[in-house]
Each structure stands twice: as C-alpha cells, then as structure tokens.
C-alpha cells in the first residue's frame, strides 16, 4: 500500500495571546487520512480541531511536527510540486457567505478558480461543476451573486469552487452548521456522491456527533489540543473507550 494522502506526525502548535501568554492549541497530534477516506475530527470549541485543519491545509506552519502529503514533506517539494500539493487539499467552511466574494458573480467565482488551476474550456467546465453539485441547469446560476442564492445553494457553490481545483482531499470545517436541518441530508448526499464519483477524501471537522457517526469511516476525538481517542466511527461513537468521549456522547441530547 502507498503512503496515506495526508499524514500529520507529532504536530504541536501554539498561539501567543494578546496578553503575551502562549496557548498550546495542538499538542503532539498524529493523524492520517487515506485516499478516498472520510475522517471526522470531533471535539468542542477550543479543542484544537480547526487549528489542525488549517495545518492540514498548509495555512498554518506548525511549531513542531511534520506534514506528509502522499509520503513527502512540504520541505522536500519543488515550488511546482508545492503548488500542486496545495490545490490538492481544498477547504469548505461553515459560513459559505464569508468565503465567497460578494461582488463576484457565480461565473466569475468559478472562472477564477478554474483559471488558477490552468484549466482549458472554462465555460464548459463551469456548467459541469454547477451541475455536479446539483445546481441545475447550471446556466441559470451564472449571473447570480452569492447573496441571491439560498443558504443551501451557497454551500453548494462553495463546494463547486473547491472542486474546480480537482482536489483529492477536502477539509470541511463544520460544513453543515449553517444549514437548516431539513437540507442537511442534501449536502451529506452530495458529499457522499462526490466521494464515490471522484474518490475524494474528507477531513470533516464537526461538533455534531450524529453527523460524524453517519458520515465518517474513522473518527478522532480531540480535547484540549490532543487526540484522546481514534478509531472506526461505529466503534468510537458507540463503544467509546475514553472517559472524555463518554462524557461528550452523554451530553448530546439523543433522539430515539
């Protein structure tokens, strides 16, 4: 078997507070995501899960530890390889509104991403992308601005823009928190379809246990900067071994 798509080894990272105190956000974390695999990173706010997601995306350079992409560290790569490695990991955020430039139309937003990737026949690809995320027929959306779309449509557009880069891994930070309950299923189905069709892997950062349980192959539970437990989702989230995970699960108001 080849090297995993993403491998984080012994990652530690701290921030300096405005007062000057150093806060360790991530403490000696090791985590892998294989090709086509879905890993959920669950934990409460301040647990370090979003910081780890940003490290995976190359947006933050960790203080110590190493990030391997398909077995190689970023330091070993040439600048061309680095650029390719960067676009291979794409983010989706909770608030699609904040990540989409409000002055750009759908046509511009997708065109910009496709040009950045160096794609040909942009007009055609743009329509394909829109339709692959369920915005059909694609052409009716081209001249719209983000605020002219519904919340669910905006999240689909954000996903389309990530797909324009032909990523192999999507780091999704609370992608469903902004969506109404009734349309969560639509987004989850879309993410599942894209996984099947394109062999995408996901690192899904979420505080929602039911979504992690339903969607992820593996789960890593974070608390105070550390991964306290990881393993197959069905196992960790039904028969947790660690006290912290047990407390976390017990706190979720359960629907029978």
């Amino acid at each position: 078997m080849g090297a995993p798509l993403l491998s984080l080894r012994g990652i530690t990272h701290g921030f300096r507070r405005s007062g000057g105190a150093l806060v360790t956000a991530v403490r000696d974390v090791s985590l892998e995501v294989g090709e086509g695999e879905t890993v959920a990173l669950v934990g409460e706010s301040g647990s370090g899960k979003s910081t780890l997601g940003r490290i995976a995306l190359g947006l933050i350079r960790p203080d110590t530890g190493r990030v391997f992409i398909a077995g190689r560290t970023l330091g070993e790569m040439s600048s061309g390889e680095l650029r390719r490695a960067r676009v291979a990991f794409q983010p989706i955020f909770q608030d699609a509104t904040a990540s989409l430039n409000p002055r750009r139309t759908v046509r511009d937003l997708l065109g910009q991403a496709l040009r950045q990737r160096g794609a040909d026949s942009i007009a055609e690809l743009r329509i394909d992308l829109l339709e692959s995320v369920g915005l059909r027929p694609g052409r009716v959306y081209l001249e719209r601005y983000p605020h002219e779309l519904s919340g669910g449509q905006r999240q689909r557009l954000a996903i389309a823009r990530a797909l324009a880069m032909q990523p192999r891994l999507i780091v999704a930070d609370e992608p469903l928190s902004g969506a109404d309950v009734s349309i969560r299923g639509q987004i989850l189905n879309l993410l599942s379809d894209l996984k099947k069709e394109r062999g995408l892997a996901y690192l899904m950062i979420t505080h929602d246990i039911s979504i992690a349980r339903a969607f992820a192959d593996r789960v890593a539970v974070m608390s105070q900067g550390q991964v306290v437990e990881q393993g197959p989702a069905a196992e960790v989230l039904t028969r947790p071994a660690q006290d912290y995970t047990k407390r976390l699960l017990a706190a979720v108001p359960e629907l029978r």
Binding site: V181, S182, I183, G185, Q186, L188, S192, I211, L255
Partner: peptide, 24 residues
C-alpha cells in the same frame, strides 16, 4: 417526519441520507 429523519441523519433503503427536498 422528515425533520426527525434529517435530525438523526437516517438513511433510506438505498443508503441515501434522509432529506426534505427543495428549499425553505
């Protein structure tokens, strides 16, 4: 009924996540 299924992230017989079609 749809809200319950969606909230529990239930799946249907085809393995699809339960969803309520359309928009609010």
């Amino acid at each position: 009924v749809g809200l319950f299924h969606a909230a529990r992230a239930d799946r249907d017989a085809q393995g699809r996540f339960a969803t309520i079609g359309g928009e609010p």
